[in-house]
Simulated assay, not measured.
Amino acid sequence: MVVGATGQIGRAAVGVLARDGWEVTALSRRGGRDESWPDGVRVVRADREDDAALAAAVGDGCDVVVDVVAFGPRHARQLTSLAGRIGSAVVISSVSVYEDGQGRNFDTQHEPGGFPEYPVPLTEGQRTVRPGDTSYSTRKAALERELLAAGDRVPTTLLRAGAVHGPHCRTPRELYFVKRNLDGRRRRVLAFGGRSRFHPVSVHTVAELIRLAAARPGSRVLNAVDPDAPTVAEIARAIDAVMGRDVEDVLVDGPPPAPGVGDTPWTVPAPVVCGMAAAERELGYRPVTRYAETLPETVAWIEERLAGRDWREAYPKMVQAYGDLFDYAAEDAWLAARDV
C-alpha cells in the first residue's frame, strides 16, 4: 500500500511497484488514479490523518506500506500501531535532518553564519537535529527515531531525500529558470559564482529505491539522491539546452548582492552533497537516471502548468517558500549600476 499515492513521489512509486509485480493499493485523500498506472492498481480514498481509515485500508494486512507523506512521531506511531499487520515499511524522510559539527542545520541557515558546513559527501552517519515538533526537520527526525526504535516490530527503511524534482512537484526549483526563459530574460545573476550545489533527486530515483527496499525489508536510514550533484550554473545551462535558449551568466563571488538578485532556490553558501554508498551496499542500488536526462519532462510539466496563468497561482507553495522569485526590476537596476 502506498500512502500519499497521488503526490509527486507516490505516483512514481505506485507505477514502479505495480510493474515490478506487486499488488498495489494506492491510498490518497481524493482517491485519484494516474493514467500511467497499470489497470490492476487498487485505488482507495482515505485521509491518512484518520487512524481508523488507514487501518481499514490495511485490512487484514499487507506486505509493505510505503508512506511518502509521514511527518512527525504521530504518524510513526500510527504505522507502528499496525505492527503484526504490516510486514515492513518504506518511509520518506529528508536530508534536512542533518546538522554539522557546530550544530548548524537547515533551521539555522537564515541566521548570520548559520548555514551548515557538511562533509562532502554527506553520509548517513552524520549527526542529526534533535527530534521535536518545532520545524519540518525536527519532525522528520522524530519520525525517524520512533520508527527505528520499533524496527523489531515494523522493519522500516527511511529514505532521506534530497531536492526532489520531476512532474507533479508543487515546489519545482526548475521554475526559476524555466519562467525566466519564457519571459525572455537574456542575463541572469548567480551568487557564489554559480557554484552552489544542493543535491537533487529524481522521482524516478526515489521510486527505484522504494522498489528495492520493498523487496529487502530492514531497519535502516539511507540517503536518496541522484548520482550527480550539478552546480546551479550547470542546472541553468541544462534547462537552457532543453528550452533552446542562450543566456549569459553574470557570476557574483559571495552572497546575493541585493534583495531579489542572484538568489535561486538552489543558492547555498556551502555544498549539500550526499553519498549513496550505503544504498548501493544494502539494496544493490544502481543509478537509473541522471539529472539532465529527466529535465525534458520536468520542463514540459512546468510550461504546461504556467500556460495562461500567473506563476503565483500555478505554484502558490513556491511563493510561500521563496517569496518573489522574479523581481526583474531589482535585477535590472543592479545590472545597470554594474554596467556603468
Rank of each mutant, 00 (worst) to 15 (best):
P167N: 04
D246C: 14
G32K: 14
C62T: 11
I235Y: 11
A89W: 01
P227F: 11
F115L: 03
G132T: 13
D133P: 06
D249W: 10
A207V: 05
A76H: 02
W22V: 00
R127A: 10
R48F: 09
E280F: 13
E49S: 13
G125C: 10
Y285V: 10
A5L: 08
D183M: 15
E23N: 11
I86Q: 01
G218W: 05
N181T: 07
V340E: 13
Y136Q: 08
T264G: 01
A18K: 02
A142E: 00
D100Y: 07
P271M: 02
R11W: 08
A5C: 06
E208D: 10
S137C: 11
R74V: 03
R338F: 08
P227D: 10
P265L: 09
Y315R: 02
A277P: 09
K317I: 04
V154Q: 03
R74W: 05
L159Q: 04
P316I: 00
L79T: 01
E144L: 02
P256N: 04
R237E: 15
V189C: 10
A55P: 09
H204Q: 12
P256A: 08
G15Q: 09
E304A: 14
W266E: 12
G125H: 15
S196I: 03
G32E: 14
G114R: 10
D263N: 10
G254P: 12
V203I: 14
A300P: 11
R187H: 08
T134H: 10
D50P: 14
D20C: 11
V288L: 14
G218T: 05
R211W: 03
Y322E: 03
D228E: 15
S36H: 15
V221Y: 03
R153W: 03
R216A: 15
Q102H: 11
P119D: 03
G166E: 08
V16F: 03
R173I: 01
A5Q: 10
A300Q: 07
V97L: 08
T128G: 06
L82E: 01
T25K: 14
R188E: 05
V250R: 00
A46M: 08
I235L: 07
D183Y: 06
M276K: 12
D228R: 13
V247L: 15
A307G: 06
L175Y: 02
